[in-house]
């Protein structure tokens, strides 16, 4: 991406999201932290277009003028003020409300805690972190078909390591959701972190999963 210049041609696919509005919700609460506002702008436009009931809680988020033109927005001055806001909003929201948070892990955890305290079920709480979870320790992987042995550094994903040595691997969401990068796991025990049950199929999601501590993986790539 960073090598591109204005005027370059790129191939694009339709957008694909794992953080979508739930159409059965009676009310949507969108919680934006900083640039986490990005996907929630689309949510707000969607809800405004369809006439859904929604509100936005924002902390440190840009584009407030756009949001305010779409529907009700409450701005918290800092994270502590946001924490004070969450309890009453979640606690008094109509039954069948859903909450969507995009922001740093701390904000996501605060929203989840407020929802739990208000006796919400987990299925009504949605989040998209824009800061990746800590990646875990280093390990080695054997690429069986390419006959390569690659060291995956701490903080590096298996997918990045494979890219680094120039072996082609499919990918799309990079969050363990879409299943595009699932690759046969031939040897070793993995620490599966995907959401598509790769383990059940004897495969591994290159974008998020790692070796279990002390293990070396062998994959069909």
């Amino acid at each position: 991406m960073h090598d591109l210049r204005p005027g370059d041609r790129v191939r694009a696919r339709s957008p694909r999201s794992s953080f979508t509005p739930v159409e059965t919700a009676a009310h949507h609460i969108l919680v934006a932290g900083g640039v986490g506002v990005t996907p929630l702008l689309s949510h707000a436009r969607w809800h405004a277009f369809w006439g859904h009931s929604f509100e936005v809680l924002a902390v440190g988020a840009p584009h407030l003028d756009v949001l305010r033109a779409l529907g009700p927005v409450t701005v918290a001055r800092d994270r502590r003020k946001m924490a004070d806001l969450l309890g009453p909003v979640v606690g008094t929201a109509p039954w069948k409300s859903h909450v969507y948070t995009c922001g740093p892990p701390g904000l996501i955890a605060a929203v989840a805690a407020a929802a739990r305290a208000a006796h919400w079920v987990g299925a009504r709480v949605h989040a998209e972190p824009f800061v990746a979870e800590p990646a875990g320790g280093p390990f080695e992987v054997v690429l069986r078909r390419s006959r390569r042995r690659v060291r995956v550094a701490a903080g590096e994903t298996l997918l990045d390591a494979v890219d680094r040595v120039g072996v082609a691997a499919p990918r799309l969401c990079r969050q363990g959701v879409c299943g595009e990068c699932l690759t046969g796991l031939v040897g070793g025990t993995a620490d599966h972190r995907d959401h598509v049950d790769a383990a059940e199929e004897g495969r591994i999601a290159l974008c998020v999963s790692r070796a279990a501590p002390g293990e070396t993986l062998e994959i069909d790539l």
Partner: peptide
Amino acid sequence: ERFLLRMPPG
């Protein structure tokens, strides 16, 4: 069902 949920849009 898992296959369908993984299908890209379009």
